[in-house]
């Protein structure tokens, strides 16, 4: 009968009108993102400021968007003097984290870093050879997992 579909539609919306709302109410109640969620790049470091990074440059070379800039210590090539992340360019693809042989890189689930100044989007994970406050503090300096065996050659 004509009008049946119209009444059915009204019943659907009428039921929903009286039902519960589905909003997250964001600024009042923050969403907890799952641990795998890739938001901002961070690094594992010990409490005394020693980062797990051994400056192998895998992440810098693998990054599609030149987000990562690493400066190696000229005397000890296995030590990074600075590790800067330009998150304004980052596409959050996770290639750096996946390829990191020491599992030093990790992602935080902190998503509230909107800014009016593009310059502040670049942050350091290692400055002057020590890990900065942007790092995630872990207890051990040894990698959590053994380095993956799948490593191949790097891009020349």
């Amino acid at each position: 009968m004509f009008g049946q579909g119209l009444l059915k539609g009204l019943s659907v919306t009428g039921r929903r009108m009286l039902g519960k709302t589905e909003c997250d109410m964001y600024p009042y109640r923050k969403r907890v993102l799952p641990p795998k969620s890739r938001i901002f790049l961070s690094m594992r470091a010990t409490p005394d400021g020693k980062a797990l990074c051994n400056a192998c440059l895998t992440c810098q070379q693998g990054c599609p968007d030149n987000v990562i800039r690493i400066e190696q210590d000229p005397e000890d090539r296995k030590r990074a003097v600075s590790f800067r992340v330009n998150s304004g360019r980052c596409t959050f693809c996770g290639i750096c984290e996946e390829n990191c042989p020491r599992h030093a890189l990790t992602f935080t689930q902190d998503f509230e870093r909107a800014t009016f100044d593009k310059g502040t989007l670049t942050y350091a994970l290692i400055a002057d050879g020590t890990a900065t406050g942007a790092c995630v503090i872990v207890e051990r300096t040894e990698p959590e997992h053994p380095a993956s065996a799948e490593g191949g050659e790097d891009v020349g």
Binding site: T13, R16, M17, L18, G19, T21, E22, C23, M25
Partner: peptide, 13 residues
């Protein structure tokens, strides 16, 4: 408010 609740959202809060 009403359209909001039909849409399952609270509307202006």
């Amino acid at each position: 408010k009403l359209v909001g609740h039909i849409h399952r959202r609270p509307g202006p809060m």
